[in-house]
Every structure is written in C-alpha cells, then in structure tokens.
Amino acid sequence: MEWPGLYNYWIAIFLMVTGLYLVMAPQNLVKKIVGLNVFQASVFVLYITMGKVTGGTAPIIAEGIEVYSNPLPHVLILTAIVVGVATTAVGLALVVRINESFGTIEEDEIRELEEAQEDAS
C-alpha cells in the first residue's frame, strides 16, 4: 500500500479525538457542544468514507458503468445528521436556560453556584 494509504480514516480518527478533547477540556458550555459536533462529524466521515468504492460512481444505473459506490452508509448518515442537529438544538436550548438561571455558562462558576446551593439547602 502506497503512502498515504487510506488517509481518510486518519482524518476521521483525528477529528474524533479532537472532538472528544473539545468536549472535555473547555469550561464553556457552548464550546463543549461544538466539540460534540466535531466528534459526531468524525463519525459521519467514517461512514461516508466506508461507502466509497475506488473508481465507483453514484449509484444510478447507466450504460457503460460497472462500479458503483455503496449508497447505504450515506443514507444512514443522513439520519445520523438529523439526530446530531436535534441534539445540538436541545443542547443549546439547555445552555440558554442555564444562562438565564445561573447567569453564566462557565462550568467552574456553575459548579461553585451549585455547591453554594447545596450547602444552603
């Protein structure tokens, strides 16, 4: 196998780890949602790339074409994108509500407010 080989998988793995890091490292709740999106996008790339057949074309029957890419992973990922959009929407809606009731979207500050409330009750 010549270099760089199946580099698309390296891209998927890179995005995956970047996304996971972005979910964990920042304190900002919106940035975490962005990280979640990057993480999910990496899975989309993983699915889409596995459907590609080298030299294959779009799966529309036409004369003179014998090799087709597999359309199923692409269709699956359309569903997963919809799920991802819904998750992002719910997540951001929660961040708005958190900002309304805590007055901040920094996790360390929220944690302090939570602990203060716990001690008070």
């Binding site: 979640l36 993480f39 998750t87 958190i98």
Partner: peptide
C-alpha cells in the same frame, strides 16, 4: 435550576455513549 445542568451533562454523556455505539 440544577436540573438544567444535570440534563446538560446527561446530554453530553448520552450523546458520546450513543455515538460510540454508532
């Protein structure tokens, strides 16, 4: 109001879990 942040954390965990399954 702590329900909101609990729900947010569940969302992050739950999405990662489901995506791993995916």
């Amino acid at each position: 109001r702590r329900a909101l942040i609990a729900s947010y954390r569940y969302l992050v965990f739950g999405t990662i879990g489901a995506t791993f399954f995916l």
